[in-house]
Amino acid sequence: MSLAKPMMRGMLAKRLRLHLPLAFVVSFSSALAFNLLIAQPRKRAYAEFYKNYDSVKDFNAMREAGIFESVRPIEK
């Protein structure tokens, strides 16, 4: 009893008919999921943070804490 010969002719084209559309669907859904679950909430969080952010107040707080070497705290 011998084994049947494997079909080699047209094997790549036959496999690509299944794997190529599947690869596009998986990559598109991954990109969409990343955009909806990570990118959009991150954009909203940054927009919300900078809506009420006062850079001068933050700078003065860091200056008073002594974080900067080139800026002295305000003498009172």
Rank of each mutant, 00 (worst) to 15 (best):
residue 10 G to Y: 09
residue 55 S to F: 04
residue 70 S to E: 05
residue 66 G to D: 02
residue 16 L to D: 05
residue 45 A to T: 05
residue 36 L to D: 05
residue 60 N to A: 06
residue 55 S to N: 07
residue 36 L to F: 08
residue 9 R to I: 06
residue 15 R to T: 13
residue 29 S to F: 09
residue 20 L to E: 06
residue 55 S to I: 03
residue 46 Y to H: 12
residue 9 R to M: 12
residue 43 K to Y: 07
residue 18 L to N: 10
residue 22 L to V: 07
residue 66 G to A: 03
residue 57 K to S: 07
residue 5 K to D: 11
residue 60 N to Q: 11
residue 37 L to A: 10
residue 6 P to V: 09
residue 41 P to E: 02
residue 14 K to Q: 14
residue 69 E to W: 11
residue 46 Y to E: 12
residue 53 Y to W: 12
residue 11 M to L: 15
residue 36 L to G: 12
residue 38 I to N: 04
residue 73 P to L: 05
residue 15 R to E: 10
residue 34 F to R: 12
residue 28 F to E: 00
residue 12 L to Q: 14
residue 59 F to S: 02
residue 22 L to Y: 05
residue 48 E to M: 04
residue 59 F to T: 02
residue 45 A to L: 07
residue 47 A to E: 11
residue 52 N to W: 03
residue 11 M to G: 10
residue 33 A to S: 09
residue 31 A to N: 09
residue 63 R to P: 00
residue 31 A to D: 01
residue 33 A to F: 06
residue 29 S to T: 14
residue 61 A to V: 01
residue 23 A to R: 13
residue 19 H to W: 08
residue 73 P to Y: 05
residue 75 E to M: 10
residue 20 L to R: 13
residue 30 S to P: 00
residue 18 L to W: 15
residue 40 Q to V: 14
residue 37 L to H: 06
residue 19 H to A: 14
residue 75 E to N: 08
residue 14 K to L: 09
residue 51 K to N: 06
residue 49 F to A: 06
residue 1 M to G: 14
residue 21 P to H: 07
residue 29 S to D: 01
residue 66 G to Y: 02
residue 38 I to W: 10
residue 68 F to L: 02
residue 76 K to P: 09
residue 44 R to T: 10
residue 70 S to H: 08
residue 65 A to E: 03
residue 48 E to P: 00
residue 67 I to N: 03
residue 19 H to Y: 13
residue 6 P to N: 08
residue 72 R to N: 10
residue 34 F to W: 10
residue 63 R to H: 01
residue 2 S to Q: 06
residue 55 S to C: 03
residue 39 A to P: 00
residue 36 L to E: 11
residue 19 H to E: 12
residue 14 K to G: 15
residue 55 S to M: 02
residue 39 A to C: 03
residue 11 M to Q: 10
residue 72 R to H: 07
residue 4 A to I: 07
residue 24 F to C: 06
